[in-house]
Design a protein around this nucleic acid. Structure first.
Length: 425
RNA sequence: GGGUCGGUACCCAAGCGGCCAAAGGGAGCAGACUGUAAAUCUGCCGGCUCAGCCUUCGUAGGUUCGAAUCCUUCCCGGCCCA
């Protein structure tokens, strides 16, 4: 345990997870001295976290595995105000009902990846609304505001960039970092939380808390940020064509979640594996080396997809997703068992129709959402972009002429990775 | 409030009376190659009952045989002046 503790920072650094820290030697000493408490905050901007939040969640998990005590924080209060960090324009405020709903959903997700069984490293879920809502405005101005100069606040990147832009910055968002600073002070005072971690865009907010703790309490606390995850082309990570990749299985199915990781670029997969895997770094590096030997096997992507799907959705859902993918990408779908097809039906868009409707090949493709219009379906047919039960279609193809799987299934595929399962009655 | 420039398809951006469903680029889709990757190459990329027709160039009118292109109204944005 001690060894893990002292090596934690080195491990995080080797994984490319450390962007910046307050006095590093100091933090190393503190980690070596024994278990500490830390927190990472998640604002309820939506009713689910997405893959971009995983790094932060896993930070808590890594610390917990090393014996430290994690405090996942749901931003019931900060979510009321909106963080200007990393945003070029003002946020729209969420109404209270939405906010409350989002908080309750996110709290469930924050409980998934951490260990809440009693013990010294037991995770504790907190919500900053609990200590922020009761505070009176005048008390806040005296107890928090008095320790912060506007000069400092204006110097923060997130504020300055907005002041320089045409969009401006409301007083509401300007004051955001005070709320977050107060969170850190509250957790320090009442729970002994000495470290706040987060994405590099949170640096300003986090050190605001460190400053407040020093000025208000005369104590020293630590900050640690991780780099924001990016894609090979530098664009924002975690967005697929259909939008964000959510952790909520109702918003992003376990199958779609798995596929997101399977389809990661070779150029990034090593880095992602280092950042996201909880496995020992040596094992991770061995996988990466094996992947470099035979990239076509996609070993690294498979490892990454498997570990994260199990972590977020559980073994059973991960198995089902694997099984569905085996049918969809495994070659000949006519060999798939009825049980496997049943899994596919749950994991992939599907619909049922009568054999009469099937006579309209173009219409069926549109209805299956594998074409945006009749013309699009025709074009794609001309370009030989569709397969039905493994048979490539052309512009003269008739879906009716294709033999059904197990007498009732027609597995449609557009391009490489777009599927739709039809059940024919 | 005054002046001025501008609003073109998912995004950027040409076009400035007929040859315009509208150049070019990006994004996207499909094919080839391969590996559920990247790069590259090829094709497609408003809709339809597809050699034709219909609906689009901020909005509403007008001029004209004919308008994205000219005129007017209004709406929205940039810049300059106040």
């Amino acid at each position: 345990m001690d060894r893990a503790s002292t090596d934690l920072l080195a491990d995080l650094t080797a994984r490319g997870l450390v962007h910046d820290t307050t006095d590093r030697a100091n933090l190393e000493d503190r980690l070596a001295a024994g278990p500490m408490s830390l927190y990472v905050g998640f604002d309820p901007t939506a009713d689910s976290l997405h893959v971009g939040h995983l790094v932060g969640q896993l930070f808590l998990r890594r610390f917990q595995m090393a014996g430290h005590k994690p405090f996942p924080l749901a931003g019931g209060a900060t979510g009321m105000v909106g963080d200007p960090s990393g945003r070029s324009d003002e946020r729209n405020l969420l109404d209270l009902d939405t906010l409350r709903h989002n908080v309750s959903r996110i709290e469930l997700q924050l409980q998934r990846l951490l260990d809440f069984t009693p013990g010294s490293a037991q995770a504790v879920l907190v919500n900053n609304a609990d200590w922020t809502e009761p505070v009176r405005l005048l008390d806040f101005l005296r107890d928090v505001g008095k320790f912060v100069t506007v000069n400092q606040m204006l110097a923060k990147d997130s504020v300055r960039s907005r002041l320089d832009s045409d969009n401006g910055l409301s007083f509401t968002e300007f004051s955001y970092s005070l709320l977050q600073a107060n969170d850190f002070r509250h957790l320090y005072e009442h729970h002994g939380v000495e470290l706040q971690a987060g994405g590099s865009d949170q640096w300003g907010n986090i050190v605001a808390g460190v400053d407040l703790i020093r000025r208000g309490l005369g104590k020293s606390a630590h900050a640690l940020t991780h780099p924001l995850v990016t894609k090979a082309d530098g664009t924002k990570f975690g967005k697929s064509v259909d939008g964000a990749v959510w952790l909520d299985p109702d918003k992003t199915s376990p199958y779609a979640f798995r596929q997101f990781w399977i389809q990661v670029d070779d150029a990034m997969v090593g880095r992602y594996l280092e950042m996201f895997s909880l496995g020992a770094l040596d094992d991770v590096r061995a996988t990466i080396a094996a992947h470099a030997e035979a990239p076509e096997k996609r070993l690294a992507q498979r490892e990454l997809a498997r570990e994260l799907t199990v972590m977020v959705h559980g073994t059973e859902a991960a198995d089902a997703a694997d099984e569905a993918a085996a049918v969809l990408f495994g070659g000949d779908p006519t060999q798939a068992s009825p049980a496997a097809l049943a899994v596919v039906a749950r994991e992939v868009p599907s619909s049922s129709m009568s054999s009469a409707q099937l006579a309209d090949t173009i219409g069926t493709l549109v209805q299956a959402k594998l074409a945006t219009s009749n013309g699009d379906a025709r074009r794609t047919l001309e370009q030989k972009g569709y397969r039905a039960n493994g048979v490539q279609l052309d512009e003269n193809a008739q879906l009716m002429a294709i033999a059904l799987l197990h007498g009732r299934y027609l597995l449609l595929r557009k391009g490489k990775a777009n599927h739709h399962l039809l059940e024919i009655s």
